[in-house]
């Protein structure tokens, strides 16, 4: 039942397997580069202050997109827009919740200062 003989596999499956493996490898290489870049910014002190924070945030966003694209296989193909919609809607809710929380708590903090 398991250990299927290769003849059982649809022709073209091996090429397809190579292609899918390559996709994971590309994802890994990109993720490694972005991670190394982010740690280099701080570890080597390439940037500081607001510029560093902006670059780090941007690198994290790009890396999240790389993970979604190459590991979770989310893309713009028509067949699974539903999932993309779900993710985008969740991200919208998250942004509202996170920015709202940070804003309100910061405001409270400022008012509490003597």
């Amino acid at each position: 039942m398991s250990n299927r003989v290769p003849a059982d596999i649809v022709p073209g499956a091996y090429a397809e397997e190579r292609r899918e493996r390559l996709s994971y490898v590309i994802g890994l290489v990109l993720a490694l580069a972005l991670t190394a870049g982010a740690f280099a910014v701080v570890g080597l002190g390439l940037l500081s202050g607001g510029a560093a924070l902006a670059v780090l945030g941007l690198l994290a966003f790009i890396q999240a997109v790389v993970h979604l694209r190459f590991f979770l296989h989310i893309d713009l193909e028509r067949s699974h827009r539903d999932d993309l919609m779900l993710i985008l809607f969740t991200v919208l809710i998250l942004l509202i919740m996170v920015s709202g929380t940070v804003w309100i708590l910061y405001d409270q903090h400022v008012r509490m200062m003597p």
Binding site: A38, G57, L59, A60, A64, L68, F71
Partner: peptide, 19 residues
């Protein structure tokens, strides 16, 4: 979980050490 970790290493560790 790996995607969530991107957020943690960026916003907790790297932001924490930078600012």
């Amino acid at each position: 979980l790996d995607v969530v970790w991107i957020g943690i290493f960026t916003f907790v560790y790297l932001f924490g050490v930078t600012s």
